[in-house]
């Protein structure tokens, strides 16, 4: 179990180096995409600035708190797509049969599959989040360490949810629409103040679309340290990751039985 985990981490590291090196081959495109993403994300600062020109606080959040939400979501989303860039393509990989190549390699299929590619613009998301965090929070080492920790947990949430959503393809056929939508839900829910969510929405962000664990709880912990919420966060990130892993392999069994392949003929 432990050697298996070590091997997987080694594999992820190797792909990371390899992908970084190959992104650097196209330096101009890399810079354009990264800057483009930073501008893209930065435009939301404008939106919140105008809003806070009109009101002092929204759902108990001030401008700085909303920017912290943004910093964590953006960095974590970037991190998950830099390291596990193929996570969004799982559906396509299943549908086109590209999955076969991964099945024929002596590595963990899921880990091999999702980490074998990177999304270049995700570097922009990552840089943007880090700059934003330091910009609004200053350089406080303990806060920054917490920030890094929460980026890792949030990246695992993003990855797990995308793995689960895309693995639906094994069961219902092309799940690209649903997966895209769920990814949109995760991102959007995680960048608005928690106070605006009432009723069903509140239930949703703590359960099926665990956006609360991505950024809302982390910001609460950074502002007001609580060991209890930290532990809850750890438990949930482990549960979701394990479930995502299990769910993918459950679907893979169906793929190996072959019934999926013929469905699309």
């Amino acid at each position: 179990m432990l050697t298996e985990a070590k091997k997987n981490i080694k594999l992820i590291g190797m792909y990371f180096k390899f992908n970084l090196y190959s992104s650097m081959e196209y330096r101009a495109s890399f810079i354009i995409q990264v800057l483009g993403m930073i501008i893209n994300n930065g435009s939301f600062i404008f939106f919140w600035w105008i809003l806070f020109e009109n009101v002092e606080s929204i759902g108990g959040y001030g401008f700085k708190d909303v920017m912290m939400l943004w910093a964590i979501s953006s960095t974590a989303f970037g991190l998950s797509h830099v390291i596990f860039g193929n996570v969004r393509r799982i559906t396509e990989i299943i549908m086109t049969g590209e999955l076969d190549s991964y099945l024929l390699q002596p590595k963990d299929v899921l880990v091999n599959l999702i980490s074998s590619r990177t999304i270049i613009s995700a570097w922009g998301d990552m840089f943007y989040g880090i700059i934003l965090f330091i910009g609004v929070n200053g350089l406080n080492i303990s806060d920054f360490m917490l920030f890094l920790l929460f980026n890792c947990t949030a990246a695992l949430f993003f990855t797990s949810i995308l793995v689960i959503a895309n693995s639906l393809t094994f069961f219902i056929g092309n799940a690209e629409g649903i997966a895209g939508l769920i990814s949109e839900f995760m991102i959007t829910f995680s960048i608005y103040p928690e106070g605006i969510y009432k009723g069903i929405a509140k239930l949703v962000i703590y359960s099926v679309v665990p956006a609360a664990f991505v950024s809302l709880i982390p910001v609460r912990i950074i502002n007001n340290f609580s060991i209890k919420w930290l532990l809850i966060l750890f438990v949930f990130v482990i549960l979701w990751s394990v479930f995502a892993y299990w769910f993918f392999y459950r679907g893979l069994k169906k793929y190996e039985s072959g019934n999926l392949i013929v469905n699309k003929l």
Partner: peptide
């Protein structure tokens, strides 16, 4: 179906496969 990385020269793919 290709097992080589589309945008990269074969040599890079060979080295990566060696690691895999």
């Amino acid at each position: 179906k290709s097992q080589l990385w589309f945008h990269l020269p074969p040599l890079d793919s060979f080295h990566l496969l060696g690691k895999i």
